Lab assay of single mutants.
Amino acid sequence: EIRVRVEKDPELGFSISGGVGGRGNPFRPDDDGIFVTRVQPEGPASKLLQPGDKIIQANGYSFINIEHGQAVSLLKTFQNTVELIIVREV
C-alpha cells in the first residue's frame, strides 16, 4: 500500500475507471475496484499516481466495493487535498 496526497489545482488531474456495476477497467477486468486510468501530464497527480494504480481509500472513505459514480462524486466533493491509499502492482 502506498499513501499519497494530491492537492487539487483546480482538479486532481487523474481519471478513474471500474467500480461495482461499472464497465470494468482495462488493467484487471475481473476486479471491480477503482483504478487510475489516466494521469494528466504536469497535473497535480503526475508525480504521484500511475495508470493501473488501484485506489482503496480516499480521505478515509473506503473505495472497496464502491460504485463508479459514487467514487467520482466523492472525489469531486473533497476540498483542496485528497489523501489516497493505493495499491500498485510492481
Rank of each mutant, 00 (worst) to 15 (best):
E1V: 06
E1F: 06
I2D: 02
I2P: 00
I2V: 05
R3P: 04
R3D: 03
R3E: 05
R3A: 08
R3N: 12
V4N: 04
R5A: 10
R5K: 13
V6L: 13
V6D: 01
E7Y: 13
E7F: 14
E7D: 12
E7C: 13
K8T: 09
P10H: 09
P10F: 05
E11I: 04
E11R: 08
E11P: 04
L12A: 05
L12R: 01
L12P: 05
L12I: 10
L12E: 05
G13I: 01
G13H: 02
F14H: 05
F14G: 01
F14E: 03
S15D: 12
S15F: 10
S15V: 08
I16H: 00
I16T: 05
I16A: 00
S17Q: 11
S17K: 04
S17L: 09
S17Y: 02
G18H: 04
G18E: 04
G19P: 06
G19A: 05
G19D: 04
G19E: 04
G19N: 05
V20Y: 11
G21A: 11
G21V: 06
G21R: 09
G21H: 06
G22F: 07
G22Q: 10
G22L: 07
G22I: 07
G22A: 10
R23A: 08
R23Y: 07
G24N: 10
G24K: 12
G24D: 11
G24Y: 11
G24T: 10
G24F: 07
G24A: 13
N25E: 07
N25D: 13
N25A: 07
N25M: 09
N25W: 06
P26Y: 07
P26V: 07
P26C: 11
P26Q: 10
F27G: 07
F27D: 14
F27S: 07
F27W: 11
R28T: 11
R28Q: 15
R28F: 13
R28I: 15
P29I: 12
P29W: 08
D30N: 12
D30H: 13
D30M: 10
D31N: 06
D31K: 06
D31Y: 03
D32A: 14
D32T: 15
D32K: 15
D32R: 11
G33W: 01
G33C: 06
G33Q: 03
G33Y: 03
I34T: 03
I34W: 00
I34L: 05
I34H: 00
F35A: 00
V36C: 02
V36N: 04
V36D: 00
T37Q: 09
T37Y: 11
R38D: 14
R38K: 15
R38V: 11
R38A: 14
R38M: 15
R38P: 00
V39H: 01
V39K: 00
V39C: 05
V39G: 00
V39P: 02
P41Y: 05
G43D: 06
G43L: 05
P44F: 04
P44C: 10
P44N: 15
A45W: 02
A45Q: 05
A45H: 00
S46A: 15
K47W: 04
K47Y: 09
K47C: 13
K47L: 08
K47Q: 15
L48S: 12
L48V: 06
L49V: 12
L49Y: 04
L49C: 04
Q50S: 10
Q50T: 10
Q50I: 14
Q50K: 12
G52V: 01
G52E: 01
G52L: 04
G52D: 01
G52Q: 03
G52S: 04
G52Y: 06
G52K: 04
G52M: 05
D53I: 01
D53L: 00
K54L: 06
K54H: 05
I55K: 02
I55G: 00
I55Y: 00
I56T: 07
I56C: 06
Q57T: 13
Q57R: 15
Q57H: 09
Q57C: 13
A58V: 10
A58N: 02
A58D: 03
A58W: 02
A58P: 01
A58T: 02
N59W: 03
N59P: 01
N59T: 01
N59C: 06
N59S: 04
N59H: 02
G60F: 03
G60Q: 11
G60E: 13
Y61R: 13
Y61C: 14
Y61W: 10
Y61Q: 12
Y61K: 12
S62D: 08
S62G: 05
F63L: 07
F63G: 01
F63Q: 01
F63E: 02
F63M: 09
I64T: 12
I64Q: 15
I64R: 12
I64M: 14
I64V: 15
N65R: 10
N65W: 04
I66R: 05
I66T: 04
I66A: 05
E67V: 08
E67D: 12
E67C: 12
E67F: 07
H68F: 15
H68W: 15
G69V: 14
G69S: 13
Q70E: 14
Q70N: 09
Q70D: 12
Q70W: 07
A71M: 02
A71G: 04
V72Y: 10
V72T: 13
V72L: 14
S73F: 11
S73P: 03
S73H: 14
S73W: 10
S73D: 14
L74D: 03
L74N: 04
L74Q: 07
L74K: 09
L74T: 07
L75F: 10
L75I: 06
T77N: 14
T77H: 13
T77D: 09
T77C: 10
F78D: 06
F78E: 10
F78A: 13
F78M: 14
F78R: 07
Q79R: 09
Q79Y: 07
Q79G: 09
N80Q: 15
T81M: 10
T81P: 13
V82Y: 06
V82L: 09
V82E: 00
V82D: 02
V82I: 11
E83F: 04
E83V: 04
E83Q: 05
E83D: 14
L84D: 01
L84W: 01
L84S: 00
L84T: 01
I85E: 15
I85T: 14
I85D: 14
I85G: 08
I86K: 03
I86L: 11
V87G: 14
V87Y: 12
R88F: 04
R88W: 00
R88C: 00
R88T: 00
E89W: 12
E89N: 15
E89S: 09
E89A: 12
V90S: 13
V90G: 14
